[in-house]
Amino acid sequence: MSSAMTGTGKSQRILLGAVAVFFGLPLVVLLLFSLADGWVGTILPTEYTLARWNTSLSSEEVLAAAGRSLLLTVCVVFIDLVLVIPAAYVAVVTAARVRPIIHALAVVPFALPWLVIAAGMQFTTAEIAPSLFGSFGLLTATIAAATFPYLYWAVENALLTNRAQELSEAAAVSGAGGLHTIIRVIIPSIRTGIMSGTLLVAASAFGEFAITMTLAGAAYETLPLWALRMFSGRNPGAGGELAAITFTTFIAMFVLSLLITRIDTPRSNTKAARAFALVPATKGK
């Protein structure tokens, strides 16, 4: 076998190396800056300290913002789980007719910028219920709507690969009731799909910027909005804290992402790939 199809050639190793540097350098510089005590007019920091890490990880502002992001994430995940699992079950097992409708809805957050969805939500509430604007409920609902396709595709994929329809029929033949079948047979069989979908929803809800900025702004300062304030503000030490928190978030997300690829089936290992596996051409139907 030659290197055209297997193994990496020299030029490919150079390309991969260059890309690794491009993706790695920002992380290295963030870590350096978070540890720097003096870094003015030099290529590398001159003094190092752990002070920024101490202040940022114990700062009440950071903890409060992280808490808000976490609460938002938990609520979004909860809404998506409650809405998506029954719908996906119905679409695969009992009423295939609803599938095209759900697929059409699921394409919206992929095709359209979330900023446009947020803008639309602002216009809608201005017309129907102005008091909702800026509320936690509206923010959560909009992010849940924008992220639901991640979970839906993961669950639908899992239902199809595990032949949920045959499973339910077999369970029905052996006398199991509908609800019993779902709880005892279906959900356990699609556990990994639910988990990987949930992690994707959580990751995007936690880092969400456009919808939060538009619908909540300063009224609900999540971690990304705190980062924006640190970036724009010129108060001393803000940069170091921003660097420390950004670095931590990246590493946490990386670990989360490693988990996703580990629990996922090899066939569908990335969120965008799964999203676009939906495109009818690639599904054959």
Binding site: R97, I117, T124, F148
Partner: peptide, 21 residues
């Protein structure tokens, strides 16, 4: 098809309606 209706209604309210607005 009923269990799918909450998601569909939610999607219409939070994704379709805003675009129409």
């Amino acid at each position: 098809a009923l269990p799918a209706s909450p998601l569909i209604l939610f999607g219409i309210a939070c994704l379709v309606l805003p675009l129409l607005a």
